[in-house]
Structure formats: structure tokens, C-alpha cells
Write a protein that binds this DNA or RNA. Sequence first.
DNA 1: CTGTATGCAAACATTTTGCATAAGC
DNA 2: GCTTATGCAAAATGTTTGCATACAG
Lengths: 136, 136
Amino acid sequence: MTNTESKTAPRRTRQRAAVSTVMATLDEFRTAQEVHAKLRDAGDPIGLATVYRTLAQMAEAGEVDCIRTPDGQSAYRRCSSGHHHHLICRYCGRAVEITPTSFETWANQVAAENGFTQIDHELELYGRCANCALAR
Amino acid sequence: MTNTESKTAPRRTRQRAAVSTVMATLDEFRTAQEVHAKLRDAGDPIGLATVYRTLAQMAEAGEVDCIRTPDGQSAYRRCSSGHHHHLICRYCGRAVEITPTSFETWANQVAAENGFTQIDHELELYGRCANCALAR
DNA sequence: CTGTATGCAAACATTTTGCATAAGC
DNA sequence: GCTTATGCAAAATGTTTGCATACAG
């Protein structure tokens, strides 16, 4: 109360820890449903809604990345570090993490030219990966 | 049975023409729902399902590109268009149109490094415009 | 006339939300 | 004990599908 800006750290619960652990061990993007199934299989009872809520919060907190699979599901993967973007294959959905170096520079320059500050951006690249190029 | 590979051209219907026309005039990605609303507003009665079906077919035929929006909707845009991007003020919503020149180069280079072809991108810049910087 | 495209509504799949209960702090 | 997190199920979304009808070829 009183303070609109106060942010309390999420409570340490078994479920949250479980999701964190699973995400920490995964290198690939996984949907909320897959994470949920994995936890259930591991004998870790958890509600689907809780997985959704937890993953959304982790994404908000920048602990995991969130993309959309070609068939419209949300997929999450732990963040390697800092701010980055993805190069996504529109055929198989494979995503490559890319580090925007020159891009950040370009963005800031364009912003400055237009008198903008506090720049943030949303960027995704879509294309056809080498594998899918062969398949066709 | 005849030919498994035979593909009949879709019939010329008012609805299909309408969707085609709308897509031809748009430079930005639009969701099926937006396209549907736009047609309805233009006094062109069409069913939502038809819009979905038509856009899916157009995407299949390579007439439009399909991506997923961050909130999970399918968005379509006609292929290869001289599109542009926006620099959007998150306070007042003012949008400045920007032309990605060096950015395109950068994107293509990154893509090539990762073995990707047929590159397309989704980019929006958000910030605080000069006006809103003063106001605060 | 024959068969495909449409419209509507119901079916679907995924994600979100309301509310009572359990648990952290 | 006061509050937040959880679980369940219902609701909300966005999309697809079944089927009768309209219409292009």
C-alpha cells in the first residue's frame, strides 16, 4: 500500500522453485504445457495455471525469454544473458539467439535524430533456416 | 484419383477479391481479425471464417507472409513490400515513420551468418519523445 | 448442373481469471 | 495473522471445422 512503486519479491514456494529448476536445465524453448507435463512426470504436482503464471512472471522479470511457436503456443527458455533477439525459422520454428551490437547503435542513432530518449525495441527476424532450405 | 499434385486455382469470389485488395493496400502486418473488421467497415460483408481460410490459403500460396504477434495472434502481410517501421512514443503515442537502411544490411548479414535466407523482420522502436520529455 | 467457397455456429486449443484454500513471511 | 501463491474449474480468446446453402465455372 501507500507506495505505488514498491515491488515485493515473489515468495519462495515449492512450485516456483520447481519451475525455476526445470527452466535452468533446459536449453531449448519449451511451451508452458510441456513444462507442466515435465513437472508432473517428475512427480512434482503443480497446477497448469501456476506454470503459466510463473513463466509469465519469470519472463516479465527477464529470467526467461518468450517466443511464439509457429502453431501459436508460447514457448519459454532461460535467458543466457542481457538483452538479445531471435532469428526464427518460419518453417520449423527453430530460433537462434542473436546479439544486437550494431543494431543497438543504429536504433539509438535513429532515436536521437528524432528527439527520442529512453529507447526500447521489439525485434524479431524471420527467415528460412538452412535445414528447411534443403527440405524444399 | 487423377493427379495427386494437381492444384485447381481458387474460384474468383467477391470475398477473395476483397481480401486480396485489402492485403495489397497494406504495408504492415495485420491480424485476420483486423482484416475482417476492415472489410466489414468498408461495407464488404464477409465471414470471419472465410477471412481465416482465405489468408491461410494465400499464405500457403506464398502470396502473403504469416507471423505470430507477441500476444499470440496470426498476422499477415503481403510479400516483399517496401515497408517501414515506427518510432513510437510510449507516453503520447506519437509515431514517427523510419526507414531502415543500415538496419536491413545488418539484418541480412546476421541472417547469412546463421544460414538463414528469405529474411523478413518485425521491428518497432519505443521511447519518449522530446515533447513528453519536457512535460515530465 | 457440378462442385467449390461461404456463412454460421459449434467445436477446439490455449491461456487467463475468480475464488476458496494452503502456505510463506 | 495477514497476504500472497496455488489449484481447480469456468471464462475468455483466437482459430478451425461441420454442414447446409450460394454461387463460380
